[in-house]
């Protein structure tokens, strides 16, 4: 194996890992902070991806848009439309208890997928959108362009991480945890529980839209196949559970480690003779499942469990005692 190739594999691995990290951070806001069981991540991901793709792609007769806007505009618009979609969804079903919200959100994600597949005047249906640019396209050619995109993705990851951390430490975040842990108590002290949950849902959905946009730019191509729930919704849930829900560092660690298991196992599967290729692909899926089982059993609250920030009251006691 040549080291240059391995380096570029690592770059691609980290791009995927970064996109999944954003999804994980977004889900962490919804589930880790707010206790909202969103099982329709793929839906918001798709809305963001298609928004950014349609705004930035080259004009084409096969779908709406192709406005060739700059990529950052596309990404911001993706956050806005995914957030608005999240708002509409939250308006309808935010009052549902967790498991019912899960069912409703699966349904909504499926509706969004069907719209994307069927409304081909808008999205070119199952044939997808081509000629989606990457940021700074044209500065670097060939494989090296991946490095530039890696920097963009991780810049976004860091921004999202900082926002999420700030949210977690804020009074808003504390209220949210109160809502999550004891809704009735939060209501009793006068917090508008529904408003808080709605805000959480919208912020999470907007961040999911950003991740969708980044993946459309990475692939330079977008079709409904890119919004497969197995790879977006469920894999992201596993990542957050493995990393530690409620912990932003955990979300990133979870995304990277689960993606490592997902992606790198194939390198080992490829060492088997090609006659076994059909079987080894399935065995690989089985092993991924087993490994995830092991991680989830061994580390119940994730690799990096949630750690509540020290509150003002604790600090006071510390001072008096020490």
């Amino acid at each position: 194996m040549d080291p240059v190739g391995l380096f570029f594999y690592l770059v691609a691995f980290l791009i995927f890992g970064g996109i999944y990290a954003i999804l994980c951070l977004a889900l962490n806001v919804q589930w880790g902070y707010g206790g909202l069981f969103n099982a329709g991540i793929a839906g918001f991901f798709a809305v963001g991806a298609y928004t950014s793709a349609l705004l930035t792609a080259a004009p084409a007769q096969t779908h709406l848009g192709g406005y060739e806007l700059p990529v950052p505009v596309g990404i911001l618009a993706a956050a806005v439309t995914a957030g608005l979609t999240g708002w509409a969804v939250a308006k309808i079903c935010i009052r549902l208890k967790s498991d019912y919200l899960a069912m409703a959100s699966i349904g909504i994600a499926e509706i969004l997928r069907m719209v994307i597949v069927n409304e081909d005047w808008l999205t070119n249906g199952s044939l997808g959108i081509t000629n989606i640019p990457r940021p700074f396209d044209g500065f670097v050619q060939g494989r090296a362009a991946d490095i530039l995109f890696l920097l963009v993705v991780w810049a976004v990851v860091i921004i999202v991480y900082l926002i999420c951390n700030r949210l977690y430490d804020s009074p808003w975040g504390r209220t949210l945890r109160a809502v999550r842990d004891n809704e009735d108590a939060a209501r009793a002290v006068g917090k508008d529980v529904d408003a808080f949950r709605l805000q959480t849902f919208v912020i999470g959905a907007a961040l999911m839209g950003v991740a969708g946009a980044l993946s459309a730019h990475y692939f330079r191509f977008l079709s409904p196949e890119a919004t497969e729930p197995l790879l977006i919704t469920f894999l992201v849930w596993v990542m957050l559970m493995a990393g530690g829900s409620g912990n932003n560092k955990g979300a990133i660690v979870g995304a990277l480690s689960v993606w490592a298991i997902w992606s790198m196992t194939e390198i080992f599967a490829n060492r088997l003779p090609a006659e076994f290729a059909t079987r080894s692909s399935y065995i690989r899926m089985l092993l991924i499942g087993l490994l995830l089982q092991f991680v989830l059993q061994r580390y119940r609250s994730g690799l990096l469990p949630e750690r509540s920030p020290g509150n003002a009251f604790d600090k006071d006691t510390d001072k008096t005692n020490g």
Binding site: F16, L222, S263
Partner: peptide
């Protein structure tokens, strides 16, 4: 053989490994 799973993410991931690894 890379398993592209008829979806974009695994296809890109598998192609990356075939080309680079």
């Amino acid at each position: 053989v890379g398993d592209s799973q008829a979806a974009s993410q695994p296809a890109v991931d598998a192609a990356t490994k075939l080309v680079n690894v």
